[in-house]
Design a binder for these strands. Structure first.
Lengths: 191, 191
DNA sequence: GTCTATAATCCGATAGAC
DNA sequence: GTCTATCGGATTATAGAC
């Protein structure tokens, strides 16, 4: 692994653990095991290093929401993606960025985050529309709205889990969403 | 307004705008319009000032979730509280704290946040249980689970709104949750 | 390409005059 | 009770030897 990769890996870890504002170049270099000057050889500074690290993280994670696209019925795919194990107390590596004041102000960083959410929400919308078309959810549901509701359940689950320092609230939030989807399914649908 | 109140007010504002870790005593004093030493006369340091400011904020906000307890039917109360106007791009003054690494590590601060969520979740649970008892929601719903789901929709709505820098995702997430509750209501319930 | 040394600034906190 | 001055250490970044 190159020195450059060591630096992006260390930055990605620290972005998750501490966020952007609270992570210093010094810490990144210490974790990567390189000297002070190396980072400024490969990157123009903290900002550019974070852009590259965050892009790499999102590249990995975007693959996960493709679980919404696999073989089962649309509603089954929705429940399958909701139920992916998520370590609530660690927080979401992408969603956490939105609470960092320095990230929200940084046009390039926040654009990367917004883009990742757009990709995921697009997959949600398509799957929800398919569920409605298949009669698994009532026609009163607006796919663009429910997509944001379910993405919010996941993001909010992280918030509740971190507030308590426990996994429980995350799992409960997911169970509640699934039970609501099941109840809506049982309502005047035609399957 | 006393110097002490000026300091807690300034700290409360900065906790909202920037979070705990990113707020320096220097900024608090500047916003409050007092000199360096004044803060250390009234408070032992940044931590104690934040404890007092956060407690005050939560005191104000906890009143809001009592909207779940008013006169209408349980399901109407749930929808009423979900639909309270919330400025998504500003973030939640309480939920935001859970993403601050210095807050999560501070036992006293995180306990204040956890307590605020517990109070709100308790009100959600009671109202949901009442809705089930009234036949407005199916008996398959677990109040403790759905309480966390709906609290998560609100918290996650803030995350999505901040990611886009727009109010839209917050409102959409709420609309989706309300439509899901309506669909669940229409399902095999007995009213 | 990597390192050490150092810049200027800010951090949270303290000391002590008034 | 409020102020200014200052501490020791951290910050992001640059300079320049190797």
């Amino acid at each position: 692994m190159s020195t450059r990769d060591d630096l992006t890996t260390a930055m990605a870890e620290l972005l998750w653990e501490r966020g952007y504002a609270a992570t210093s170049p010094r810490e990144v270099m210490a974790r990567a095991g390189v000297g002070q000057g190396s980072m400024y050889h490969h990157f123009s500074g903290k900002h550019e290093l974070a852009v590259e690290a965050l892009s790499a993280v999102i590249g990995e994670m975007t693959g996960e929401s493709s679980l919404l696209e696999g073989g089962a019925s649309p509603l089954e795919r929705m429940k399958r993606y909701l139920s992916v194990p998520r370590a609530g107390t660690l927080g979401c590596r992408v969603g956490r960025m939105t609470q960092d004041p320095q990230v929200v102000v940084d046009a390039e960083l926040i654009a990367i985050v917004a883009n990742a959410f757009d990709t995921m929400l697009g997959r949600w919308e398509q799957t929800i529309a398919a569920a409605i078309a298949a009669g698994e959810l009532p026609a009163s549901i607006v796919p663009a709205d429910l997509a944001r509701t379910l993405a919010a359940v996941i993001q909010g689950g992280y918030v509740l889990a971190r507030a308590k320092g426990e996994q429980g609230p995350m799992d409960a939030a997911i169970r509640g969403a699934v039970s609501l989807l099941d109840a809506a399914h049982a309502a005047g649908t035609d399957d």
